[in-house]
Simulated scan of single mutants.
Amino acid sequence: MRTNPVKRLLKAGQPSVGTWLSLGNITAARFLSRAGFDWLTVDVEHSLVNVETTTHMIASIADAGCVPLVRVPSNRHDHIKRVLDNGGFGVVVPMVCTRQEAQDAVSACLYPPFGTRSVGGSVHALNFGASPVEYYAKANDEILIVLQCEHIQAVRNFDEVYSVPGVDAVFVGPNDLAASMRDPTGRPPASDAFQQALADILAGATRIGVPAGIHTFSIEEAKARIAEGWQFVAVNSELKFMADGAKQVVDGLGLGKGGDLAKY
């Protein structure tokens, strides 16, 4: 049975870098899975992708030798079970704000006696190059469980929420975290306050011995975050790569058409 190299990198204290797939496109997943990233996350929370297309995308990623992860729409047992049964090597669970929510997410990922994941399916075994029997015996050791820290209240209660056994990484959702810090008038937080929240997350993760992750938007930012100690690092998305590449060509040729694709 295939092992999950991302899980091992994180346990060893090493950085692991991937990107987000937000377009629901199987062909894009096939190409990016060969680009050299450690992992690719299919975003089912904020995209149009359905479970059938997600299944084909994660199969393509796995067949290329990359690690397929899925950000589920919400912290529900059925969402988590379905993407794992269809071959995901792990899940990214959004908006985990309480210890009970963290426990529920971990439980949904693991087979008894350590969790409540039900036994069934065969696509998961196919992606891991194993028989179903072998998969059921070893899956608990290979599934990557990443919980998102996206609310300032979760930052304040960090140790209580994310110290649940079985959590492999805590991943910051920068946009939602900043939104949760708006003042009563809707004004966003000051840069210093937001950066302090990120520092608190990194310190908390170090304190409880869980790798911290964050979404970045440039090579320079990714390098800086890795140097700070962040391990599970996402860089852009396939949409952002496409938009940035197109803008570079348009600007370089001085087309002056007033295009605004790069803002996405």
Rank of each mutant, 00 (worst) to 15 (best):
V106R: 03
Q100D: 14
T98C: 03
I80V: 14
A130L: 10
R8E: 12
S60F: 04
P94W: 07
R76I: 01
R82P: 03
S47D: 07
A246S: 10
T185G: 07
S122Q: 10
V96T: 11
P112H: 04
R99V: 09
A137L: 02
L23E: 13
E228H: 04
L144M: 06
F241S: 05
V123A: 12
A262Y: 05
G252T: 02
H77L: 11
Y136R: 09
W39P: 08
E45T: 01
S16K: 06
V210F: 05
N175L: 11
L10A: 00
L48W: 14
Y136P: 00
F241A: 07
L48D: 10
N236T: 06
S74Q: 12
D104P: 00
R34Y: 02
P188V: 00
V249R: 04
T27H: 13
A243D: 06
L110A: 05
M57D: 00
P174M: 01
D43P: 05
D38Y: 10
V133L: 11
D43A: 02
V155T: 03
Q103P: 00
V210K: 04
L202T: 00
V42T: 09
H124L: 05
Y111R: 00
M57Q: 15
T53K: 13
K81S: 13
D251F: 07
E52I: 07
C97I: 11
A197S: 13
N236L: 12
N50M: 01
R30H: 08
V17T: 12
K7S: 02
A179G: 02
G259R: 07
P113A: 00
N75M: 10
Y162Q: 06
A224Y: 08
I61M: 06
V167I: 14
G121S: 06
P113E: 01
V70N: 05
L147K: 02
W39L: 03
I143E: 01
A102H: 08
E150D: 14
A125D: 06
A234F: 11
V249T: 11
S60A: 15
V6T: 04
R71V: 05
N140T: 07
W230T: 01
A62I: 07
D244I: 08
D192V: 12
L10G: 00
A179T: 13
S118K: 07
A205G: 15
R182N: 10
G90F: 13
G259D: 08
V49T: 15
C97S: 15
E45V: 02
P211E: 00
G252C: 05
K257H: 08
T185C: 03
V92I: 15
A179Q: 13
A190T: 09
D159Y: 04
M181H: 09
G13Q: 03
N50T: 08
D200R: 11
S118N: 11
A243W: 05
G90L: 12
K247T: 10
G204W: 03
H56L: 12
L10Y: 02
A178S: 15
N140C: 10
R34N: 12
Y111Q: 06
K11H: 11
M181Q: 05
P112W: 04
A243N: 15
L144S: 01
L110N: 12
D159F: 03
A179S: 13
L177W: 05
P165S: 00
K223T: 13
V17G: 08
R187I: 06
